[in-house]
Amino acid sequence: MRRGLSNLGAATLRQIEELGRMIRFGGRIVMAAGRPPFRWRSFMAAVYDSGLLSVALICAAGLTVGFVLGLQLYNTLVRFGAEDSLGTAVGLSLIRELGPVLTGLLVTGRAGSAITAEIGAMRTGQQLDGLRMMAIDPIHFVVMPRAMAVFFVLPLLSALFVALGIFGAYLMGVEVLGLDGGTYLASLEAAVEFDTDVLQSLVKSVVFGVLLALIATWRGYSCEPHSAGVSRATTSTVVTASIAILLADYLLTALWSL
């Protein structure tokens, strides 16, 4: 009994310590970003890897989610004779929730895991120690550009997802199911407001970007220096970041509706 309790206590303390180390690591990234020179070359390369190469995935996912939303919501709304509100339903659900959350999860899987594996492999190959030997701060040289890139591209990708989702639902509702295109867009534009919906979407995607950037780089940086450690760190990035994004989404939604 006593032993079980002290095990629980030790495990809790370890988690809290880990959280504290991660937040301090985040502070070091921010400090590094403010310290010249800004690593434009690595930043551009990271934006290319995390952002541009995710565009195809985000477009395909956004379009598909748009199709599904259009079809499902149409079938529900048509029972109440309210199929003219399809634009409202699609727009609000995509902009407020699905856009930022699904983009966050997809980018976690596509780019977050890659960043963890890359930094983890550098740690395993002692390249991070090598940089430090040359008096180059690995956080400034390796971690900061990648973290900044994830933070920077997530709102862009999320907006892309939302736009393609709206377009996908338009294709489904107007071209396939025969709704009026003007009605769809008018009900969309009448229902969506900047300060409650679009701003909420942007804030969410920025927060998710911070969470993912921090978790992915920290897991790679703190990974155990062997191949099993890299694999564990990569898995842990996907799990932790997904949970963090979903939790943050709930908190932000609750705060917004206060």
């Binding site: 934006v47 952002g51 565009v55 902009i95 862009l156 892309l160 534009e189 900047f194 919906d197 679009v198």
Partner: peptide, 17 residues
């Protein structure tokens, strides 16, 4: 890519929002 993303954000804010 960046221009496209900013354009879409602008579209969502100005036209839709």
């Amino acid at each position: 890519f960046v221009l496209l993303g900013l354009g879409v954000i602008a579209y969502l804010s100005l036209q839709v929002g």
